[in-house]
Simulated scan of single mutants.
Amino acid sequence: MLFATLANVDDWVEMEYFAHYNEEYLKKYIKLENGIPSHDTLCRVFGMLQPEILQQLYKK
């Protein structure tokens, strides 16, 4: 998510596309044992996070 945000990705579909396009690069930093998550999965996972926690992470 961080790399996609820095690349001006605007939505979950673009984030999934970005991940597929940069999959080899991303594998240097994270394990993708089950492949790239779908845009629906990204939306569900980040929808479960509390916004306050994400804001705190960005402030550091």
Rank of each mutant, 00 (worst) to 15 (best):
L57I: 13
D10G: 14
Q50C: 05
E23C: 13
F18V: 05
P37Q: 02
L54Y: 01
Y58A: 12
F46W: 10
E33D: 10
K59V: 09
G47Y: 00
N8W: 07
P51F: 02
Q55N: 06
H39T: 09
W12K: 08
D11E: 07
Q56S: 07
A4R: 03
L32G: 00
L2M: 12
G35M: 00
P51C: 03
E14F: 08
G35V: 01
Y17S: 15
L54D: 01
M1W: 02
W12I: 05
F18K: 03
T5C: 04
V45D: 07
E24Q: 13
M1R: 06
R44V: 12
L42K: 04
F46H: 03
L2V: 15
A19T: 09
D10K: 14
V13W: 09
Y25V: 15
K59W: 06
N34D: 00
V13F: 13
F46I: 10
E24L: 13
N34G: 01
Y25D: 12
C43A: 11
F46L: 09
V13Q: 15
N34V: 01
I30D: 02
Y58P: 03
Q56R: 06
D10A: 14
K27E: 12
V9Q: 04
E14N: 12
M1A: 09
Y58V: 10
E33V: 03
F18E: 04
T41M: 04
P51M: 03
E23T: 11
D10Q: 14
A4P: 02
K59E: 14
F3Y: 10
Y17I: 15
Q56T: 06
M48R: 05
R44N: 09
E23I: 15
Q56W: 00
K27V: 11
E16K: 11
W12Q: 09
W12R: 07
F3S: 13
I30S: 02
I30F: 08
M15D: 07
N8S: 14
H39I: 08
Q56F: 01
F3M: 11
L42Y: 11
E52Q: 04
K31E: 08
E14K: 13
K60S: 13
P51Y: 02
Q55F: 04
I36C: 04
D40R: 01
Y58K: 08
E23S: 12
L26H: 08
N22S: 10
P51L: 03
E16D: 11
L54S: 05
Q55D: 06
F46R: 02
A4M: 03
N22M: 07
H39D: 14
V45N: 07
Q50R: 10
L6D: 09
W12M: 10
D40K: 02
L6R: 12
E52W: 01
I53L: 05
N22R: 13
N8V: 08
K31P: 01
E16H: 11
I30M: 06
Y29R: 03
L54C: 05
G35P: 00
H20F: 13
F3A: 14
P37M: 02
F18P: 04
V45M: 06
P37S: 04
W12P: 07
E52M: 04
F18W: 04
W12V: 08
F18Q: 01
K60M: 13
N22V: 07
P37N: 02
Y21H: 13
H39S: 15
L57A: 12
N8A: 13
G35Q: 00
A7H: 06
Y17G: 13
L42W: 06
D10V: 12
